[in-house]
Design a binder for these strands. Structure first.
Lengths: 208, 208
DNA sequence: CATCGGCCTGACCATCCGGTCAGAAAAAGA
DNA sequence: TCTTTTTCTGACCGGATGGTCAGGCCGATG
């Protein structure tokens, strides 16, 4: 009886260990990529033995997959939260801020996805062109309607969303580069918030 | 006499093969990362045998390093080309367009760097905080002067540069995601050019 | 056309890595 | 306490992978 993944962890030990494994795996996968990470690294980081990892998860793939799918929901929450009934610019600015906050609070998760997508998203193509696409389509339609109503500047909703992703995730994914250039004394995220506020404010104001 | 890297390739065969190796390595490294790529893959892609690779390069690391350093110059050319004597908005818009064009024409190079930086830039930290930092500092100073002269909106030069990097490279590095959402019929890069033109035009116009 | 030096290869090696397994240790239950 | 179930481990396996080496090939030069 190997497979524990099917029925959710019940005992205290199971919950504690699966959690430790996923935490360790996030740390290791996000900074080395899937292929660049080893079970030994994860085991060491989790304070467990390698065979014990494989007692809780059937394979390295399974750990990675569990992480990725478990995080996708959280990751897309801010986008889901865009409210068609809200004030357009507030909604989008809130989205930007929440996304930037996630980059600051969850850089490892950001890098995990970045690694995956960079390498062709072999393990989540179905999610990208399935759930993600339809969510983005939905929100793009909302933005389009706002534009039609003259409440936002005329800009492409899809590329607006891409630009938000690009700029917010940049501060997590390329943190080393940002820090190398700004130096350690700067609070990159605080500065980014000011900058992005200004940028999107200017971008979204309706034409006169 | 193993090391050929020291003195530049002389014979026709050397030039042809080192070129084939670097081309193949770019293809393989950029889509699998350093750790995810094997010498066999590179050898196959280059049409050579594995020992023959190691006749031209002393190690896998050496191939990767050669690629990375060789490309850094090309990669930063557009930034270098920003002319303090030029018209500020033209200079920056030209930079954006050239950077986007590079993402379209050299997506593999973009992904190679992205992979490296994502994983903490272990092999190019010195370049980041050395040459790159000083180049960015220099150009940021130029932009600051333009702002002081009232020829650009008051925005942080460093984060302006980050935003250009983020948005242009996004279309290369996350191409799979972009394509999954837009579908194959869209020309993402053409749309991006229009979008970024508008975005930076609005961002940079001096306040009244 | 001979020969010499640059070019190339098959076979091999040591190590790493994901994964297995028999059974020990520990916890839970009776 | 005794038994059963869960948790854990050392030893091991097979395949992949980076790298080596002795020697064969082959093209340029005299």
């Amino acid at each position: 009886m190997d497979d524990i993944g099917a029925n959710r962890p019940k005992t205290r030990i199971q919950r504690r260990n699966t959690e430790a494994i996923l935490e360790a795996a996030l740390e290791v996968f996000s900074s080395n990529g899937f292929r660049g990470s080893t079970l030994d690294q994860i085991a060491r980081a989790a304070g467990l033995s390698k065979p014990n990892l494989l007692y809780y998860f059937p394979s390295k793939e399974a750990i990675h997959s569990e992480l990725l799918n478990g995080l996708l929901d959280v990751w897309l929450d801010p986008l889901r939260a865009i409210d068609p009934a809200g004030e357009p610019r507030d909604e989008i600015m809130t989205y930007v801020r929440r996304k930037l906050e996630m980059s600051r609070e969850m850089p490892r998760e950001s890098r995990l996805f970045a690694n995956e997508v960079l390498q062709g998203a072999p393990r989540i193509t179905d999610v990208l062109s399935g759930g993600l696409k339809s969510l983005v389509d939905e929100k793009a339609a909302v933005i389009r309607d706002w534009i039609e109503a003259g409440r936002l500047a005329r800009i492409d909703p899809y590329h607006l969303i891409f630009s938000i992703w690009a700029m917010t995730q940049h501060y997590a994914d390329f943190e080393v580069q940002v820090r190398a250039i700004l130096g350690p004394e700067h609070d990159a995220f605080a500065e980014a918030e000011v900058f992005l506020d200004r940028l999107f404010d200017r971008l979204l104001s309706p034409d006169p």
